[in-house]
């Protein structure tokens, strides 16, 4: 298994990432920018450039679960055009009724070399859709 990519650096320019299939619920959003800033770190903001221009807070799932499994199936790597280069993993953070949660079940995975991303749904691994991050 390859090493995970480091989190985006604070000084990085917004990176445009292609999501060929969008993500579930936002199938029309094909281009996203990943915005990392010192104020936000360790969160990063994933913002759609296509309507409806959804915006998501994300966090590296390994920050929450150090042993988080970064294994992708062969066809998933193929969808990212990935051989064994490092990939960037992001869990989408949701805040509802003052409770923050992170979706460890369906991580966003980005191949920085090809600037291609996809949200994969893990069928066999029982990571929660709403991993609790506490009240905010």
């Amino acid at each position: 298994m390859s090493q995970p990519a480091p989190a985006p650096s604070a000084a990085s320019e917004p990176l445009v990432v292609e999501f060929p299939s969008g993500i579930p619920g936002f199938e029309t959003c094909h281009r996203f920018v990943l915005v990392a800033s010192p104020e936000l770190a360790p969160l990063a903001c994933l913002r759609a450039l296509d309507p409806p221009e959804a915006s998501f807070l994300t966090v590296d799932p390994r920050l929450l679960e150090p042993g988080y499994d970064l294994t992708l199936r062969e066809f998933e790597r193929a969808r990212l055009g990935a051989a064994d280069e490092p990939l960037l993993w992001l869990a989408i953070v949701s805040i509802a009724d003052g409770e923050a949660t992170a979706n460890l079940r369906a991580p966003i995975v980005i191949n920085p070399r090809r600037m291609t991303g996809c949200q994969f749904i893990r069928d066999e691994v029982e990571y929660p859709v709403r991993y609790p991050l506490g009240r905010v």
Binding site: G25, S94, A96, L133
Partner: peptide, 19 residues
């Protein structure tokens, strides 16, 4: 997952206590 994404969209405003 679609419902989770929909509920997460727009929560892009950083929340200092979470950070």
């Amino acid at each position: 997952i679609r419902a989770a994404n929909t509920s997460a969209a727009g929560s892009g405003v950083p929340v200092q206590s979470l950070v």
